[in-house]
């Protein structure tokens, strides 16, 4: 704080000079083009960065996906048409990742589907229960709300390290299990358990966010409706089923959309927690994109770009599907 106050006499005049200078440049322009065209000026910086770092790359990605080789600059890359996609989809049997040329890609897809299904249902279930609990008349609601929300703020690297430490073979979870007569496990090296923990940890880290959204949805339900239903003699379950659920549906839908789209892009937490292992058991799609393009010795940018387009298209389909379903459910 002291640094800020000592800097203040310095930054204030500097800022003033900067703002006045911009004003001096803009005034004549404004006189010439008129008020409404000044909108172009205000939107320009954002549009420039957006154009260079989002829009242009989106188009360029298409080109990358159709070129081969290991060079980064497009001019050095031979055009190969749809070869990259053919490589990705070269499978004898699509239900058997082993039979594919890029078996890691297909394993990634299968793992992603599995992860998404379990993680999204876990998030929806637990954030709904937590929101319902927090919406009651409880002591220290603010405190409990913070408790469930706190992990949301932690970085994926930190979250992964916290759980890696707990789940290691000589870790506290095994110690507690042995205390109660259980057997210790190498949780993250066990093919059956690794996926469970990857899902568990990401539900742990993210559910507070969705709880908060659902809580806002619950609080927007007018209390008069519950008064009316209690006059009609409804019990708690009927309250939930016929008042809460229908009115919470739009919010639930938002939760579903956001959590689905984010689950498909899952990367960092798992990357630090298991590195995609044991073997490739928890390697998801984004990790394939990263490994193929950036961390392997031979950097196959074309294949990576093609895989990322598959990811982009699946995200697009999910979004459109949900928009459609959303419209239907709001009509019903």
């Amino acid at each position: 704080m002291r640094i800020l106050t000592t800097l203040d006499p310095l930054t204030r005049p500097l800022l003033f000079i900067l703002v006045t200078a911009i004003d001096g440049i803009l005034k004549p322009i404004q006189r010439r083009v008129g008020i409404d065209k000044m909108g172009y000026f205000f939107v320009l910086p954002n549009l420039l960065i957006f154009g260079i770092f989002v829009l242009f790359p989106m188009l360029l990605n298409l080109y990358y996906a159709m070129t081969g080789g290991t060079k980064l600059f497009p001019a050095d890359r031979p055009f190969v048409g749809l070869d990259n996609f053919a490589t990705l989809f070269d499978c004898e049997n699509f239900s058997q990742p082993n039979s594919c040329q890029e078996d890691l890609f297909w394993r990634g897809i299968f793992n992603t589907i599995q992860f998404v299904v379990f993680q999204v249902s876990g998030i929806v279930l637990f954030s709904l229960i937590t929101a319902l609990v927090l919406n009651q008349n409880i002591v220290a609601r603010g405190f409990f709300r913070s408790v469930f929300f706190y992990p949301v703020l932690l970085s994926p690297v930190v979250v992964a390290l916290i759980w890696k430490w707990i789940l290691q073979h000589e870790g506290v979870l095994n110690a507690i299990l042995e205390l109660f007569g259980g057997e210790s496990m190498r949780w993250l090296l066990d093919t059956n358990w690794a996926m469970f923990w990857v899902v568990f940890v990401s539900v742990w880290a993210l559910m507070g966010f969705y709880t908060l959204i659902l809580l806002a949805g619950l609080q927007s339900i007018p209390p008069e409706l519950y008064e009316a239903s209690s006059i009609d003699g409804a019990n708690t379950w009927q309250d939930f089923r016929f008042v809460t659920m229908p009115l919470l549906m739009p919010t639930m839908f938002v939760v579903l959309v956001l959590s689905l789209i984010r689950a498909v892009q899952m990367f960092d937490q798992i990357f630090v927690l298991t590195g995609g292992g044991p073997g490739t058991r928890t390697q998801l799609m984004v990790q394939y994109i990263y490994t193929t393009g950036f961390s392997n010795q031979i950097q196959l940018f074309g294949l990576s770009a093609a895989a990322s387009m598959v990811l982009g298209v699946s995200l697009l389909i999910l979004t459109l599907l949900q928009l459609r379903l959303g419209n239907q459910s709001s009509l019903a």
């Binding site: 790359p57 989106m58 990605n61 892009q265 990367f267 393009g293």
Partner: peptide, 10 residues
């Protein structure tokens, strides 16, 4: 994540 390669080029 969908445009990693081209942004890296830029």
């Amino acid at each position: 994540t969908v445009i990693l390669v081209p942004v890296f080029l830029v």
